[in-house]
């Protein structure tokens, strides 16, 4: 029952924020919809270790901060390439995700793809992400380092 409740609350909040109608009838409706979606998703029985929650939250905030800085820097780089017609050296490079879980690999791939100038084209069973970059030489050295840090943070978040 606990995993369902854990999923039900964020789903209900999601519904309430989306509809922005705090009348009782809509709140009940939100609970029904959230319950239905939670039942469809069938959450896992994994237990929360409350001792690790503050550390995980701090890691999540740090992870989002790094992602935002990456977004701003790479966005500006791509804008410069397009506006000033700078030369590019595109290509696909292999980057090991370094994550044990599929969720970690998926989140890493999302973080890479949401950053302009880098895009995951394929992931193999070993978790190697084949990433298309606008500047292969620059990206190859910095991306592996960035991915190691990302994998460590994700490990702390989802421990």
């Amino acid at each position: 029952m606990m995993p369902y409740t854990r999923l039900l609350i964020p789903l209900w909040l999601f519904y309430m924020l989306l509809t922005n109608n705090w009348q009782l009838s809509n709140m009940v409706m939100g609970m029904v919809v959230a319950g239905w979606v939670a039942w469809l998703l069938r959450p896992s029985e994994r237990k929360i270790v409350w001792r690790t929650v503050p550390g995980a939250l701090a890691a999540a905030v740090y992870y989002l901060g790094i992602l935002l800085v990456d977004l701003a820097q790479s966005g500006w780089q791509v804008v410069r390439i397009i506006l000033f017609n700078q030369p590019i050296n595109p290509g696909i490079i292999a980057i090991p995700s370094g994550c044990d879980s599929e969720l970690g690999t998926a989140l890493s791939a999302h973080a890479i793809t949401v950053t302009p100038g880098e895009m995951v084209v394929e992931i193999n069973e070993a978790g190697v992400m084949y990433t298309h970059c606008l500047e292969v030489d620059k990206a190859a050295e910095h991306m592996e380092r960035a991915q190691k840090m990302r994998a460590e943070l994700l490990q702390r978040i989802f421990i």
Partner: peptide
């Protein structure tokens, strides 16, 4: 695809 390197 433009570019020389293609690990995939």
């Amino acid at each position: 695809m433009t570019g020389k390197r293609d690990d995939l």
